[in-house]
Simulated assay, not measured.
Amino acid sequence: MRPRPQMNKALRQQQNEIDDYLIYTALSRIEKDQKNKKILKDIAAEEKRHYEFWKKITRKERKARRWIVVLYALMARYLGTSFALKLLERREEGAEEFYRELFDIYPEAKTIYEQESHHEKLLIDMLSDRKLLYAGAIVLGMNDALVELTGTLSGIALAFDKSALVGITGLIMGIAASLSMAGSAYLESKESPAEGIDPAVYALYTGIAYIFTTILLVGPFFLFETTLPALLLMFAAAVAAIVLYNFYISVARDQPFWKRLKEMSLITFGVALVSFGIGYTVRTWFGIDI
């Protein structure tokens, strides 16, 4: 009989396999792209074989946890299939040591580990994810809004110590800029067409990302009468947006999280600091007190 701690690990791995099997099966049923559907079915079949392997070891049945299946299905629907499945497969990164302990005892474990660590990742990389195709549009809208508005709002807030005035000014500028950015994104996409990308949809993603970021950043100025707490909350919201977005991209595109986070943060808050200095200079030199 296997030692209890190792048996517990085997049961946990068995549970993951049956969860994954149902997740891939559910996604394959709602997937419209036939190529994607086949890939998802292939991975589901592998997960089912892995479950049967662990079942022979533990001699126990496991049922899929429905809430996990629903969670990943929602992530796939709203955040993209690539993001949901790559986040799902990250669970296997910590399983290498456990699998290696079983190689000598159960030779089949080596085959399963290789499938988990290589084959399934290759299959996921082959998926055609339309949401990921438009990630560039989200970058364009969100990053531009973060850089421009944190800088602009910081400068205005120091020049005019009226929170509502700053918020209204930022909102007007943000909406106007979002329309301008959407138009520019449309023309850019038309001039440099990419396979699978609709210029109108690309422009829509850019504009929506810009407006959403605008609302996130100007919102605090309608919550406080003075600008200092509004500025602090605005910067907190900007940090949260940068962290969440870079986490999404790092998972969906297998890119380094910390490098992207530092780069985007330095640009955003560097511009804000310069704008803050300009606002302070304008207020001091011209004696503005509005």
Results as ranks from 00 to 15, higher is better:
Glu97Gln: 08
Ala26Glu: 10
Glu89Pro: 01
Asp104Cys: 01
Lys60Val: 01
Arg59Ile: 01
Ala76Asp: 04
Lys110Gln: 13
Thr111Ile: 10
Glu52Asp: 13
Phe103Ile: 03
Trp54Lys: 02
Lys32Thr: 15
Ala109Lys: 01
Ala26Phe: 05
Arg59Trp: 05
Lys37Val: 10
Leu27Asn: 10
Trp54Gln: 00
Ala73Met: 11
Leu88Gly: 11
Thr58Trp: 01
Val69Phe: 02
Glu108Cys: 01
Leu85Glu: 08
Arg77Ala: 15
Ala64Gln: 06
Phe83Tyr: 06
Asp33Asn: 15
Asp33Leu: 10
Glu46Ala: 02
Asn36Cys: 06
Leu40Arg: 03
Glu101Met: 06
Ile23Cys: 05
Glu92Ala: 11
Lys32Trp: 07
Ala45Cys: 06
His50Val: 02
Tyr51Trp: 03
Glu101Cys: 00
Lys48Ile: 06
Ala26Gly: 04
Glu97Gly: 02
Tyr113Val: 01
Leu27Glu: 07
Phe98His: 10
Lys48Met: 14
Val70Asp: 11
Thr25Trp: 05
Ala84Leu: 11
Leu74Tyr: 12
Lys86Gln: 11
Ala26Cys: 05
Trp67Ala: 12
Thr81Ala: 13
Glu96Asp: 12
Glu61Phe: 02
Ile68His: 04
Met75Ala: 15
Lys55Pro: 00
Lys56Ala: 09
Trp54Gly: 00
Ile57Trp: 01
Lys48Ser: 04
Arg65Asn: 11
Lys60His: 04
Arg65Leu: 07
Gln115Pro: 03
Asp42Leu: 03
His50Asp: 03
Asn36Pro: 09
Trp54Tyr: 09
Glu89Gln: 13
Arg90Leu: 13
Lys38Ile: 12
Gln34His: 13
Thr58Lys: 02
Met75Arg: 10
Ile68Thr: 07
Leu87Ala: 14
Ile30Trp: 04
Val69Cys: 00
Glu46Phe: 07
Glu89Cys: 06
Leu40Pro: 08
Leu22Ser: 08
Gly80Met: 07
Arg66Pro: 05
Ala64Asn: 00
Tyr113Asn: 03
Trp54Met: 02
Arg91Gly: 15
Ser28Val: 04
Lys37Ser: 15
Arg62Trp: 02
Ala109Glu: 04
Ala64Ile: 04
Ile68Glu: 12
Leu27Gly: 12
Arg62Gly: 05
Tyr113Trp: 15
Lys32Ser: 15
Gln115Cys: 05
Ile112Thr: 07
Leu79His: 03
Leu79Arg: 08
Arg29Glu: 14
Glu114Ile: 04
Lys32Asp: 15
Leu102Trp: 00
Ile105Asn: 01
Lys86Leu: 05
Arg29Asn: 11
Asp33Gln: 14
Glu46Ser: 11
Ala44Cys: 08
Ala95Gly: 02
Leu79Trp: 07
Trp54Asp: 00
Tyr72Met: 06
Glu93Ala: 11
Trp67Pro: 07
Arg65Tyr: 08
Glu31Thr: 14
Leu85Met: 07
Tyr99Val: 03
Phe53Ile: 00
Val69Gln: 04
Lys48Asn: 08
Ile105Ser: 12
Leu87Val: 11
Met75Pro: 06
Ala26Ser: 11
Glu96Tyr: 06
Arg90Gln: 15
